[in-house]
Design a protein around this nucleic acid. Sequence first.
DNA 1: CACATATCCCCCAAAACAGGTTATTTATAC
DNA 2: GTATAAATAACCTGTTTTGGGGGATATGTG
Lengths: 209, 209
Amino acid sequence: MQEFNINICLIEDDETIREGYEYLINNTEGYKVTGSFPSYEDAAKKIARCEPDVILLDVELPGVSGIDAIPKLKKLVPEAHVIILTVYEQELQIFRALGNGAAGYMTKDTPHERILTSIKEVMSGGGPMSSQIARMVIQSFQRNEESPLTPRETEILEQISTGKSRKRIAEELFIDLETVKSHIKNIYSKLNVHSKADAIKLAKDNKFI
Amino acid sequence: MQEFNINICLIEDDETIREGYEYLINNTEGYKVTGSFPSYEDAAKKIARCEPDVILLDVELPGVSGIDAIPKLKKLVPEAHVIILTVYEQELQIFRALGNGAAGYMTKDTPHERILTSIKEVMSGGGPMSSQIARMVIQSFQRNEESPLTPRETEILEQISTGKSRKRIAEELFIDLETVKSHIKNIYSKLNVHSKADAIKLAKDNKFI
DNA sequence: CACATATCCCCCAAAACAGGTTATTTATAC
DNA sequence: GTATAAATAACCTGTTTTGGGGGATATGTG
């Protein structure tokens, strides 16, 4: 009946939680736990032989943290999709995990049913995230409405942040070099900075660009 | 029985699709369509009086595109959460929509049931996304493993991309200006470029930084 | 040992940058 | 209709940065 068979490995130091997931997964048709480890160090030795399709990875691990374990695991089993499981919803942690190659990010209060669909989702090219995590990720793309910069000033500061020279910016926007310089002077004055590095940093921190 | 009552507005030029969603939503307890428009221009006049909690917005609209309509709608009804509904999954479009303030992004092949849960999700601070969209968003955070740059070179190129001068980078990394220059020469040579703007662009396009 | 990586040193000329001041045009606001 | 904000352009002064050329030295790892 069941068309698929997904191998899953768990890395989680809390034995109770680990056994809970293990029980859940092994009792669902099509899913099988082929490895279960309390730390990255333990997993490293044997995980390749478990041939996991999906790795459920805790962030708060003894020794190597879950975040730092992601790239190492990807080297050991490149085909595996890593889904982070954590109690925390810290922005920095989320972005570091995703940057390190996590394919999904779920909080531990997620219903068991959702964990199983998350596994199926990564297998079919999706990126499962808890709803609050998704909101944080989306927010990281959004601009600050309260920017003191005009649209043109914002545009020019964006160009500067790509490393382009004023001359090149002028050419690409079909305006005079002097005009670009004027805009930059106004930008610096509004942001109260005296260099492009400071302008870029302040603007990025405040999501003006 | 029902504890909530969510006002929804639709902006969608295809009448059949629009009426389909309208029927679906109005026949679900707790959800009500208070406005339904074929274009942004039509919506702009009346939408404030509809007091929407959620706006379902098509991207392919006649006149003002859905993407450009987002900030305008947010000005008209700041409390409303905008969910994009589209047939396309174009990366650039997704990021522009999210950057413009969309709280969710769903493809039109989404089951009707999922549309309703998406509406509930945005109302409780979530960020609903189709699974493929979520993967693309997650991928935008990830680095290229095949970078030709060494860790130190990557670090320095990252610093350059923030607009810092070589002198400042040297100070912050506690190395000599000449060392920074050497690294930059190597970076340019590896990437086959002759300016920081080109190096930054190439590195970002290829996700080396 | 060779190789990669990271570090430091010298030189040069062209380009880019920061800041000061003023002015015109256009559009929106009151 | 007259302020006001935004975008445009010009002229001036310096200082700093940049990109490219040539090297050299240490420190690891396979």
